[in-house]
């Protein structure tokens, strides 16, 4: 999987298609796939949250959490690359009359509140449930928000994949699709990595606790947890 993401870099240098915007346009191959993957990640997180509510299995909650986490990180990338691209091609770092920018920002702000919500609930079961409810609500919010903001604003931001505006030459389209696939795989890989590390950390914590209990023996007072219970 990581190999394919390196293929992204390869295509990036191998098939450079300078459009009328020149070299700057290259950021397109990073920005757009990042955005698409982040948004899909948010929606997938909602589905995973629904799975958690249905099965009560904490692994679904952990998946939903990690999916949102990664999408937020990708979202930072989207905003940063978008700002750079906007500066280069429109002359401003941020433009308010762009529905796509504004709706992405709102969605990003919404998902950032996932963290304070999650960390301010102590009971793990309740935390998992509430986080899932949030994931579902916010996941449904993503398309609604896009509709509302788009209706309110003009249409200057290029829509890449719709029927008319997608007038990319073949090479560009190929590069774009490979970049998109690479970005999606990068996302999946990162999510898996994070899940594995979370699992490992949890197991380590459990082992340590068992070890501590053994050391303290039967009669000794209950050991004070040296490992602070981190929210997972």
């Amino acid at each position: 999987m990581v190999l394919i993401t390196t293929a992204l870099a390869l295509v990036f240098f191998y098939a450079p298609n300078d459009a009328d915007q020149g070299f700057v346009q290259k950021i397109f191959y990073v920005h757009v796939p990042l955005a698409i993957v982040a948004l899909i990640g948010f929606i997938v997180a909602g589905v995973l949250g629904a799975m958690h509510l249905r099965t009560r299995d904490d692994t679904w909650d952990a998946r939903s959490y990690v999916a949102i986490h990664m999408s937020v990180i990708f979202g930072v990338g989207v905003l940063a690359t978008g700002a750079i691209w906007a500066r280069a091609s429109w002359g401003k770092w941020w433009v308010w009359d762009e529905p796509t920018l504004v709706s992405f920002l709102i969605i990003f702000l919404l998902y950032v509140t996932y963290y304070p919500l999650r960390y301010s609930i102590d009971d793990p079961q309740r935390r998992a449930r509430y986080a899932s409810v949030f994931a579902i609500t916010a996941g449904a919010f993503v398309p609604i928000n896009f509709i509302a903001v788009r209706m309110a604003e003009s249409l200057v931001h290029p829509r890449v994949l719709n029927q008319t505006a997608g007038d990319m030459p073949g090479e560009m389209r190929l590069t774009f699709l490979v970049a998109l696939a690479g970005m999606a795989l990068l996302y999946v890989t990162l999510v898996k990595l994070e899940l594995t590390s979370k699992n490992a950390r949890r197991q380590l914590r459990r082992l340590r606790r068992m070890l501590e209990e053994e050391h303290s023996g039967g009669a000794a007072p209950p050991p004070i947890a040296t490992v602070p219970a981190k929210p997972n």
Binding site: I106, I107, L109, L110, T113, L117, A138, F141, N145, V149
Partner: peptide, 8 residues
């Protein structure tokens, strides 16, 4: 939580 959700 409320403000972003009520933007629409």
């Amino acid at each position: 939580l409320l403000l972003p959700l009520t933007v629409p």
